[in-house]
Structures are given as C-alpha cells and as structure tokens.
C-alpha cells in the first residue's frame, strides 16, 4: 500500500513538472510567434494543458480531501473562463480589423 502511495506521489511530481514545462512553452510561444493570431494559440497551451497538469499534480499530491475539491473548482472555473476570455480578445481584435499575417517563409508581406 505504501509503495502504491509513493508511486502516486511520483506521478504527481511528474505531472507538476511537465505542467510547469507546458506553461513555459506557452509563454515562449507567445514571445516567439510572429503575429497576434498565432500568439492566441500559444496562450491557449497555458490555459488548457498547463492548467490541467499542474492542478492534477497538486490534486494527487494532496490526496483526496477538500483541497482536491477546491482544486477541481479552480480547474472548472479556469476551463469556463479561460476560453471565454480568449474568445473575447479574439473577437475584439477581429472586429477592430487586425487580420492574420500570411507568411510564406519570409517575414515580410501582409497580403490581405
């Protein structure tokens, strides 16, 4: 039983660390990508993958009690509001007329 619990702990650490890596990748993407529309997708990596893995890791680490429920609540909340605010930003940018960049292996040329 104790070995099983320690195995769970190891899974929790792996989840937390890979979640952290995903968050870094999301931030790196939002720094590296060339235009606004592609940055939206990079931010969505943080919003989905990073949040799931980090919260899952913390939930397994704490065992099953009220803290897990609170983590679940934060997860559900971020799952509802994260896409909604992404959509709101995208919608506002679309309405205000920012068009996607058409890139053909060159950094120049917005053909739209």
């Amino acid at each position: 039983m104790s070995i099983f619990l320690e195995f769970l702990q190891v899974i929790a650490w792996i989840c937390i660390l890979s979640g952290g890596i995903l968050v870094i990748i999301g931030a790196l993407g939002s720094l590296r990508f060339p235009d606004f529309w592609s940055r939206l997708h990079a931010a969505s990596v943080t919003d989905s993958g990073g949040v799931i893995l980090l919260l899952l890791g913390m939930g397994i680490h704490s065992g099953f009690n009220l803290i897990t429920f609170k983590l679940l609540l934060i997860g559900v909340f971020l799952f509802i509001t994260g896409p909604t605010s992404s959509h709101a930003v995208a919608n506002a940018a679309w309405v205000s007329g920012i068009k996607p960049l058409r890139k053909k292996h060159k950094k120049s040329g917005i053909d739209k």
Binding site: L40, S44, G49, N91
Partner: peptide
C-alpha cells in the same frame, strides 16, 4: 465554441448565424 477554443490550435472568433468563424494555426 468553448471546446473549439480550449483545444489549442483553433479559436472561435465570431458567432454568426449558423456557423462559427474559426481561426486555425
């Protein structure tokens, strides 16, 4: 719409009539 946005790589931009406008990476 939220599921489309939640999966990275696609984002719902606008809801119009009977279709969504989706931006794909």
């Amino acid at each position: 719409a939220n599921t489309i946005t939640l999966t990275p790589g696609t984002i719902t931009v606008e809801v119009e009539g009977d279709h969504f406008l989706v931006h794909g990476l």
